[in-house]
Each structure stands twice: as structure tokens, then as C-alpha cells.
């Protein structure tokens, strides 16, 4: 078989194929539920109810979406430049770590501490990605593997700190950091509703990334580097420097997920702060086709699936990992569908 480009895809093709990908994902979900001995329709109902069925559920979904918007943006920004940052998990923890250190060790008043915590987090996350990107631009070391391996190194480093220098003396022996003082936490957007300003910050970042990508020279340069590095270099774009700037933005965004989780939700740092938010950010970004505003929508969708599946698995005998399968399958179906809107499969 061979792929032939389609000059102008018909609307039926451009919309029908992604719709087909969604249908295929739903069919797979139904099959998985049936294998578990559950009624597929009931399972779907429970997932939707668990995600948006009540005020509590909806707020839970919004809270879960917050770190995913940050990590999704981090991945989207980097992938746009074909910088394969698979290390959002490590950058998230670097951000969370800096947040806790600044918030608990410096004794600053809240209004001063919070911006400093966010800034420190951004710097820490950016630095974590700076290493791999310098290795890539200077020595040609593939960043996929280095960023992946850094996730494991960072997890061990955090575990060491939580059992050693950063351990909460009042923690009854649990490996967790001391809690942030009350006034160093992100306030709730609306009093009485369990949703903090981290969510608003995530939306602001999404808008900011969108403006950066569409309205600035850097955005143009990032796109050019991502489309064709040789051509970008030929056009006089400093490819190395663009990649470094991209990495700093991407690492900083991922770190804000750690900042927002610690300062907005948890109040302290534990080694299970992130249930793979960094890796899930890849799915979020890909489902959004790397569009920063799309990231918000896809983060809400992905968070809804996770929150809904958690709640569903408590009611039905379907393991919560159904959510992970669905999202991975959705990712693969979707990239294939998008390809087929632009290319026609020809025999021979």
C-alpha cells in the first residue's frame, strides 16, 4: 500500500474520520466493560455520573484537570518544536519541591511567598529540562531517553528528601514534607467551592501560550523549527537557541502543575503527589493536536474520564485501569484518523 496526499479533504472526511476514532474508542470501552462482566451502557453511565453527575464530581474533575492543563501545555509547546519532552513528570516534581522549600523554609508572608513559590517552581522545572536540551543541541544526545530517565532519578531524589532533610518532624514517620502555612496557599476562586486559583492560572497559561504561538516571533520560530529544522536553519533561525527557549517554557509550565497541586490542593509534598500527570500530559496534548486552547478541553475530558472511572470502579466490578486503556487507544485512533484526513491509502 501507498499513501497519497489529498489536496483538499472534503468536510465529510475531515470530520467523519475523527468521529470514527471516537466511536472506535467507545466500542473498545464497551468490549472491555463486557469482558469484566458489566453492562457497557451502565458502565458508561457511571463514568459520566462520576465525572459530572454532581457539584462535587464536577469540581473534582476541574481539580484533576488543573495539573493536566499545565503538563498538557508543557508537552504541546515542546512537541510543536519537535522537542520530545517526556519528562514533564520530573519537571512537575521539581516545581513542587521548590514550592515547598520556599513556602516552608523562608518564613515569608503569604502575599510575598506565593508569587515567589510560583517563580521558583518555574525556574526549577526549566532547569530540569535545560540539561537534556543542552545535551541534545550540543552533543546530539536523544532527549527522549534522557528526559524519561530523569523522571526516575527525580522520583528517587524526592524520596530521599522526604525521608531525610525535608521530612516533616510532625509527620508520624510518614515520608512527607512539612505543610505550607495557611497564608502561603492558593485561595479558592469562590468561597465554599473546592476549586483553587491554580485552575484559573492554568487557563491564563493556556491563553498565554496561544498568544505566544500565534502573535510572537518566538512562536513563529518554534513552528519553523518543528516543521523542518534544516529549512529553519537555512532561513537564519538560531535553531539551538529556539529549542532552549522552548525547553525553558515547557519545563516551567510542567513545574507549575507541581506548584498548583502543592499550593492549591495538597498543601505538602509526598512522593505520590502526581499519579502520572506528566505522562498523561502527552495524551492531553496529542488529543488537542498540540493546540494550547484545545489542551484545556482535552484536559477536562481526560480528567473527567479518570475521575469518572475511579467512581465507576467503586460501584461496578470494572477495574479503574479501563480509563488508561481508553485514553491510550483514543490517542492511537486519533493520530491515525488525522493522518487519513490528509492522505488516501492506495493499493500498490
Amino acid at each position: 500500500m501507498r499513501l497519497d496526499p489529498i489536496a483538499a479533504p472534503s468536510p465529510a472526511r475531515a470530520l467523519g474520520l475523527p468521529a470514527l476514532a471516537i466511536l472506535a474508542t467507545i466500542a473498545l470501552a464497551a468490549a472491555l466493560a463486557a469482558i469484566a462482566g458489566a453492562n457497557p451502557l451502565e458502565t458508561f453511565g457511571l463514568i459520566v455520573k462520576g465525572a459530572v453527575g454532581s457539584k462535587f464530581a464536577t469540581l473534582e474533575t476541574l481539580n484533576r484537570a488543573t495539573p493536566l492543563i499545565f503538563t498538557g501545555l508543557a508537552v504541546a509547546v515542546a512537541f510543536r518544536a519537535r522537542l520530545w519532552n517526556i519528562g514533564a513528570e520530573a519537571q512537575l516534581y521539581a516545581g513542587a519541591l521548590m514550592t515547598v522549600v520556599i513556602g516552608t523554609q523562608l518564613g515569608l508572608p503569604g502575599p510575598l511567598a506565593i508569587p515567589l513559590m510560583a517563580l521558583g517552581a518555574i525556574v526549577a522545572g526549566a532547569l530540569v529540562l535545560l540539561g537534556p536540551v543542552l545535551l541534545k543541541t550540543r552533543l546530539g544526545v536523544d532527549e527522549v531517553v534522557t528526559t524519561l530517565l530523569l523522571n526516575f532519578i527525580m522520583a528517587l531524589f524526592i524520596s530521599y528528601l522526604l525521608e531525610g532533610p525535608l521530612k516533616d518532624p510532625m509527620g508520624m514517620g510518614w515520608p512527607k514534607s512539612p505543610a505550607l502555612p495557611r497564608d502561603a496557599r492558593l485561595p479558592r476562586i469562590v468561597e465554599g467551592l473546592r476549586l483553587h486559583w491554580g485552575f484559573a492560572l492554568a487557563l491564563i497559561c493556556a491563553a498565554g501560550v496561544w498568544v505566544m504561538q500565534t502573535r510572537t516571533t518566538l512562536g513563529y520560530e518554534i513552528r519553523a523549527v518543528g516543521q523542518n529544522q534544516q529549512a529553519a536553519r537555512f532561513a537564519g533561525i538560531p535553531v539551538g537557541r529556539v529549542l532552549i527557549k522552548t525547553a525553558l517554557i515547557s519545563g516551567g509550565l510542567a513545574a507549575l502543575a507541581g506548584f498548583s497541586e502543592v499550593a492549591g490542593l495538597k498543601g505538602n509534598l509526598t512522593s505520590d503527589l502526581s499519579p502520572d500527570f506528566g505522562y498523561t500530559g502527552i495524551i492531553v496534548a496529542m488529543l488537542a493536536l498540540l493546540h494550547p486552547l484545545g489542551v484545556v478541553v482535552s484536559a477536562l475530558f481526560v480528567a473527567g474520564i479518570f475521575v469518572g472511572a475511579d467512581s465507576m470502579s467503586r460501584a461496578a466490578d470494572v477495574p479503574t485501569y479501563i480509563a488508561d486503556i481508553l485514553l491510550a487507544a483514543a490517542l492511537l485512533f486519533m493520530v491515525l484518523a488525522i493522518l487519513l484526513t490528509r492522505y488516501r491509502v492506495v493499493r500498490g
Binding site: 527522549v144 505522562y279 496529542m286 477495574p319 488508561d324 490517542l331 493520530v335
Partner: peptide
Amino acid sequence: LTVPFGLSQHVVGLGITLLATASAYYAYRL
């Protein structure tokens, strides 16, 4: 996905890792 369709080997590979891992965990819990 990567040979005849020529999709990004990075994206597909990570997708396969997530899919295979989640499938194993799902089946184990089942």
C-alpha cells in the same frame, strides 16, 4: 501504525507503552 501509515514513531511508541501497560494492569485486576 508506523510502517505503512508512517505515523510519528515517538507518539505511537509512547501510545503503545501506555496501552500495553494499562492492558496488563486491567487484566491483572480483572
